[in-house]
Design a binder for these strands. Sequence first.
DNA 1: CCTACCGATCGGTAGG
DNA 2: CCTACCGATCGGTAGG
Lengths: 206, 206
Amino acid sequence: MSRESTNRRSDGEQTHAEILDHAVRLASIEGVNSITLGRLAEQTGFSKSGVYAHFGSRERLQMEIIEAAEQIFQREVIQRGLDAPEGLPRIINIYDAYLSYIEHDVFPGGCFFAGLVSEFDARDGQIHEAVVAGRKAWDELVRGLIETAQSHGEIDPAVDPDQLAFELDAIVDHTNFVYVLYRDPVAIERGRSTVSATIRRWTLQR
Amino acid sequence: MSRESTNRRSDGEQTHAEILDHAVRLASIEGVNSITLGRLAEQTGFSKSGVYAHFGSRERLQMEIIEAAEQIFQREVIQRGLDAPEGLPRIINIYDAYLSYIEHDVFPGGCFFAGLVSEFDARDGQIHEAVVAGRKAWDELVRGLIETAQSHGEIDPAVDPDQLAFELDAIVDHTNFVYVLYRDPVAIERGRSTVSATIRRWTLQR
DNA sequence: CCTACCGATCGGTAGG
DNA sequence: CCTACCGATCGGTAGG
């Protein structure tokens, strides 16, 4: 009983994961819609129908790319970001995690979801709906964090959580925009200091 | 001497403009890279090689799409925006023009250049370079407006013009992001009030 | 501005 | 996971 035979199933899973990982990186640079089975096959060294067999359809491949990117975002931004004491520290920490995720080039094309939103915002269909749902989940998460900080007395309960969320999201989105377009690490510093100043402004007496 | 014969050349120009106009709209929704000669031909009612003949190559068509969009942006945002007294009123006016341009759906896919930057920020090549150059021109324009307002005593000369520009650009970019993704006109109101508050904050004594 | 075509590549299938 | 293939579409060309 060789180890190879009992674990044969994981070989297929590993190949699947290897192709998907490459596809996610490529999609972050060129867009989910510009992924083709042929180029993916060429770049990973498998046959085109070999790649195809792992996903069943191009649409399915695209959805799996998005799901894989979501898992990475969940790990790098959400989990790291929530690993701080409740209230204001958690808000500071999650936006810091967001900027670190951009800074460390977790995806070669910058924030995967900034690109994904831009690619599918004006289209209709399954992917557009998934992107809207994913963004709404982020909005809800941030609103919850802000409301908790309000109930802790760290942020004035009279302020509109959506307004603060809008300002913070604008800063990190624009940081990604400048960082990726100009390939300039200084953008990250400006993002960090602007987030800090914005949070400071909203937590002092108004 | 019929009018038709003396003006024959303008028929070709009009066809060229008609195809290009359709291409710009399509590109604002689906991206410059997803434009194909075949679909453009089908949707405008010309033959594929008829469309091709007007542009000479797909690359050339893409560059003409970007140039045409730039002219529209120049007219709708820059010209309208600069039509105000020098100094602070001009800064307020240009960001108001920017938000109006988003609000009135000048392009069906939202701000053409937000999409274009996202599509080509992480790629290399001619279009990437053109996009970087175009964005730098915007940065220079805004910096000049802010410096003029500083020399007029409307903004503290000690503040970094790039920081104020970063904050204002972040707001309008994110307004476009929310407006197009959620198709929610309320985003425009939030963008306007946030721009106003930001300018107010930077023009009071600090 | 058209028809008729070129080789390359697309997503997907058959059969193993 | 492979080879060999399918019809459709790609950018581009020839010739008018």
